[in-house]
Simulated scan of single mutants.
Amino acid sequence: MADTAHGPAADGTTPALPEDLQVAAAMAARSRLERLLAAPTPFAHDDGSADPTVTAALNAEGLARHEYLDQLLAALSASRLIVPVAAHSIGEPARLQLGETAPAAHEPHTNDAAEDAVDLAVRLADGHLALPVFTSAAAAAAWRDDVRPVPVSPQRAAQVACMSTDQLWVLDPGTRDLRLPRPAVVALAGGEDWIPSWRNEPVQTEVAAQLGAVDGVTGVAFAPGESAELRIFIRVDASAGTPAVAATLEACQYVMVNPAWGELIDTVELCPVPG
Rank of each mutant, 00 (worst) to 15 (best):
Met1Glu: 15
Met1Gly: 15
Ala5Glu: 13
Ala5Phe: 12
Gly7Thr: 09
Pro8Gly: 01
Ala10Asp: 13
Asp11Asn: 13
Thr13Trp: 00
Ala16Val: 03
Pro18Gly: 14
Glu19Pro: 01
Glu19Trp: 02
Glu19Tyr: 00
Asp20Leu: 07
Asp20Glu: 14
Asp20Ser: 14
Leu21Phe: 08
Ala24Asn: 07
Ala24Trp: 03
Met27Thr: 15
Ala28Phe: 07
Leu33Arg: 08
Leu33Trp: 05
Glu34Asp: 12
Glu34Arg: 13
Leu37Pro: 01
Ala38Lys: 12
Ala39Trp: 09
Ala39Glu: 14
Pro40Gln: 04
Pro40Asp: 10
Pro42Phe: 05
Ser49Val: 07
Ala50Cys: 12
Thr53Glu: 12
Val54Pro: 02
Val54Lys: 05
Thr55Lys: 04
Glu61Cys: 02
Leu63Ala: 13
Leu63His: 08
His66Pro: 01
Glu67Asp: 15
Glu67Gln: 15
Leu73Ser: 03
Leu73Val: 15
Leu76Ser: 02
Ser77Thr: 15
Ser79Met: 10
Leu81Glu: 01
Val83Ala: 06
Pro84His: 00
Ala86Tyr: 01
Ser89Lys: 03
Ser89Tyr: 00
Gly91Phe: 06
Glu92Lys: 12
Glu92His: 10
Pro93Cys: 11
Arg95Lys: 08
Leu96Asp: 04
Gln97Thr: 11
Gly99Lys: 04
Glu100Trp: 03
Thr101Leu: 15
Thr101Ile: 15
His106Phe: 07
Thr110Asp: 12
Asn111Ile: 10
Asn111Ser: 14
Asp116Ala: 14
Asp116Lys: 06
Ala117Lys: 09
Val118Trp: 01
Ala121Lys: 06
Arg123Ile: 15
Leu129Val: 13
Leu129Met: 13
Leu131Thr: 11
Ala138Gln: 13
Ala141Lys: 04
Ala142Cys: 04
Arg144Gln: 14
Asp146Val: 06
Asp146Asn: 13
Val147Ser: 05
Arg148Gln: 12
Arg148Cys: 06
Pro149His: 09
Pro151Arg: 03
Val152Lys: 04
Gln155Ala: 11
Gln155Trp: 02
Ala161Phe: 03
Ala161Trp: 02
Ala161Thr: 07
Cys162Arg: 06
Cys162Val: 15
Cys162Gln: 09
Ser164Arg: 13
Leu168Trp: 01
Leu168Tyr: 04
Leu168Cys: 09
Leu178His: 05
Arg179Asn: 07
Pro181Gly: 10
Pro183Asp: 08
Ala184Trp: 06
Val186Gln: 00
Ala187Gln: 04
Ala189Tyr: 08
Gly191Ile: 07
Glu192Trp: 09
Trp194Asp: 05
Ile195Met: 11
Ile195Pro: 00
Ile195Cys: 11
Ser197Thr: 08
Arg199Ile: 10
Pro202Ser: 11
Val203Glu: 02
Ala208Met: 05
Gly212His: 09
Gly212Glu: 07
Val214Pro: 02
Asp215Lys: 08
Val217Trp: 01
Ala221Ser: 15
Pro224Asp: 10
Gly225Ile: 09
Gly225Phe: 03
Ser227Ile: 13
Ser227His: 14
Phe233Trp: 10
Ser239Asp: 14
Pro243Thr: 12
Ala247Asn: 05
Gln253Leu: 12
Val257Pro: 01
Asn258Thr: 10
Pro259Met: 10
Gly262Tyr: 00
Glu263Ser: 12
Glu263Ile: 02
Glu263Leu: 03
Leu264Val: 04
Leu264Pro: 00
Thr267Ile: 05
Thr267Arg: 11
Val268Pro: 00
Pro274Lys: 03
